[in-house]
Nucleic acid binder design. Structure first.
Lengths: 108, 108
DNA sequence: AAATTGTGCAACCAAATGGTTTTATTATTT
DNA sequence: AAATAATAAAACCATTTGGTTGCACAATTT
């Protein structure tokens, strides 16, 4: 198993999705993310590291605080991939249409 | 760790994304999916089970073959979640705008 | 100066993941 | 009837994951 650090893995975990949504509302420090999360500070910190490696967030030091900011542009890649699949799917229907057309002709 | 079986986990693995893209082009049996995948039949079969549990594909018996079909509707959930995050993000900018407006007023 | 706050690092753990191989069963061809 | 093809089921394995706890350390407050 190669350690994968991509956007798809970033959003695979519900805790990380929760973090992303929290940060979508604005930058927060780690403590603020931990609040009401039901997970320990270290647990959250681990997820943040993953998100950083996936370039989903940026971390900037500010005194003793660490400010987390979301970088939602990465999510475009996900939407792109979904659209690619849908495109193939639609082409598939076109192919089926052609097949049905030809079958019709043969029947006549 | 609770065993999560949702669409986000379904697309987290590159092999599974490959399978979904293959199936987006049309239904296939397991052997056809295995072709050129570089992974054993059993490996693919495992991924298919996960995808089935996530309701990303349907498996139907046809003689001794098992036909796999993609169910792309599930991908809507992913796009929905991305849009939700983006919405929050945009609201955040609105809030910032208001803040800047008020700061301006105070200066005058 | 002392207490508090925000954090990082390391070790640890159980469970899940992503693969493999082997064996057995069923359907189709020949 | 025998050979082949398509699959399922199970056992196994190393690595990753998602969490924990304990300790150390720097920056702020008091």
């Amino acid at each position: 198993m190669i350690e994968r650090r991509d956007i798809f893995q970033a959003i695979a975990d519900p805790t990380r999705r929760m973090i992303i949504q929290k940060l979508s509302g604005g930058a927060l420090n780690i403590g603020q993310i931990v609040e009401d999360s039901g997970i320990s500070r270290q647990g959250i910190a681990k997820h943040l590291r993953v998100l950083q490696q996936c370039e989903m967030i940026t971390l900037t030091q500010k005194g003793r605080e660490q400010i987390c900011e979301a970088r939602l542009e990465q999510l475009d890649k996900v939407v792109e991939w979904v659209n690619e699949s849908r495109k193939l799917w639609n082409q598939r229907l076109v192919k089926l249409d052609r097949f049905l057309e030809e079958t019709k002709k043969q029947k006549i």
